[in-house]
């Protein structure tokens, strides 16, 4: 469970101070499906990075299962990312020289898992996203949707408690988008993990149980009852 209290994040751009997040208070329960929407530069990705232990807030605290990510050292944050958080990016961010199987294995490399176990688990993760026949393909030999499935397998292979997706369908066509979102929802349902999706796409956002809106760094939550699904 996430508990964000009075989160503020500022950046220095030259001599200018930019406020990305302002007094954000938020609680995300285990197994929640949350969508974060907002204008470009509104602070969506910044909030996702704070949730993903990729960055620290300028003010406030971020408790993940009771432990404050804001006070952790780099090495501890790295351990949290390695064990508990899975990332899915808009541009897939696969290593171009490694095969699908090897890309999935990169997520297990920091865990000190034996090579044979890594291979087995990566193969299972690829099978779970329907790509077991493409394990030996390089990213350049896969379609966009297939690459995103590999990225999802890489995020899931370490059995994280949280899956953070930054515009996961932003680079995909509509049919592929639907497939990927359905895959993410299925995984969330099967594994009971928390799913947080940053998106510009209202269709994707409407699939979530909770819709958050970020405008100029200020977070508001839209009531679910007002959201038409379909």
């Amino acid at each position: 469970m996430y508990q964000l209290t009075n989160i503020g994040k500022t950046y220095k751009q030259g001599s200018r101070i930019v406020t990305a997040l302002k007094d954000v208070d938020l609680t995300i329960e285990d197994g929640d499906h949350v969508a974060i929407q907002g204008q470009t530069g509104g602070g969506k990705s910044t909030l996702l990075q704070l949730l993903g232990a990729l960055d620290r807030p300028s003010t406030g605290s971020i408790l993940l299962d009771g432990k404050d990510l804001a006070r952790m050292r780099d090495a501890e944050l790295g351990r949290v990312r390695a064990t508990r958080i899975g990332f899915v990016f808009q541009g897939f961010n696969l290593i171009p020289t490694l095969t699908a199987q090897e890309n999935v294995e990169t997520a297990l490399a920091p865990l000190g898992i034996a090579a044979t176990d890594r291979r087995r688990r990566a193969a299972e993760a690829l099978a779970a996203v329907g790509l077991d026949t493409r394990a030996s393909h390089l990213p350049s030999e896969l379609s966009g949707g297939q690459q995103q499935r590999v990225a999802i397998a890489r995020a899931l292979v370490k059995d994280p408690s949280v899956l953070l997706a930054d515009e996961p369908t932003g680079a995909l066509d509509e049919d592929t988008r639907n497939d990927i979102i359905e895959l993410l929802e299925r995984i969330r349902d099967e594994r009971g993990i928390t799913l947080v999706v940053v998106t510009h796409d209202s269709w994707v956002a409407r699939r979530a149980k909770r819709r958050l809106q970020l405008r100029a760094g200020v977070l508001t939550e839209r009531p679910v009852a007002t959201v038409p699904v379909g």
């Binding site: 993903g52 090495a75 790295g78 990312r81 390695a82 064990t83 990332f87 961010n93 997520a107 920091p110």
Partner: peptide, 16 residues
Amino acid sequence: TREFGTLKAIGWTNRR
């Protein structure tokens, strides 16, 4: 940059 940023995001340490 993106490659190493991604690897760090998924838990690779600086040493690795």
